[in-house]
Amino acid sequence: MPVSRTADDLPEWRRRTTAGDFAVWGAWLAGLALTVACFEFISGRTIWAFVWDAPTQGADLVQRMFPPAWTYADVLWKPMWDTINIATLGTLLAIAIGFPMAFLAAHNTTPSVLFVRPVMLFLIVSSRSINSLIWALILVIVFGPGMLAGILAIGLRSVGFIAKLTYEAIEEIDRTQVEAVTATGASNPQVLAWAIVPQIMPAFAGISVFRWDINIREATVLGLVGAGGIGMQLQASINTLAWPQVTMIFILILGTVVVSEWVSARVRHAVI
């Protein structure tokens, strides 16, 4: 009731009622208080002397990082190629597993809403909540350091991403097209192939390429836990405080990411 009467009985318009005003201000205040409390907690675990020193440290770091070790690039081509392969093969693995999973998880295509769907949703959530770096950490312990752990880590993390977005696309398809193909006497697999797959294909291709783009980024750091790629060189350079080499690695990553983003944008533009 934002319109009320003033003392002289004139109509007065306000955006909210008094109670509404209090509620909104209270909510803002509570949010602010929470943030400050959280910051206090963090601040209690921070050695502020180091922080006040940060500008000097930063300037010092920048000074040591430049000029980049241009010749170091020769050593980096192979790890960079490995990084791209980890991302690409990992994405392909995720597509191979995630695509059928999406059909098992989608409400309108799952063979069993009571049993199969909840299992799939649980697998999808588990895959999505564990960062690929943690997956890599686990897989390096299991399979030893190297690209295999990296590919599997990327694959396992991406399965959930691809399956989730794809099953959402499946649930949003146009039902009448499905009805029409069913009415011709088509079997269930035929309905899937003729009415559902054509409808979700553009979305699915877009999702896959988008994930590949993200995976290129993720693959650059997997080496930090020993799962192959350029992150291994990054780790080695940081441990030996070889900052010009670190700069060179950053530049190379920047270039690769920019190219992959461009490719992904082009492909997504083409399929939609």
């Binding site: 675990r45 950053f250 990553i253 920019v258």
Partner: peptide, 24 residues
């Protein structure tokens, strides 16, 4: 957007030291 969070974290840890502030 270009750099993975981990890489940015490495730089911040180098600047402000270990701990949650770098993460924040």
């Amino acid at each position: 957007r270009t750099f993975q969070e981990i890489i940015i974290a490495i730089v911040f840890v180098a600047m402000v030291g270990f701990g949650p502030l770098a993460g924040m």
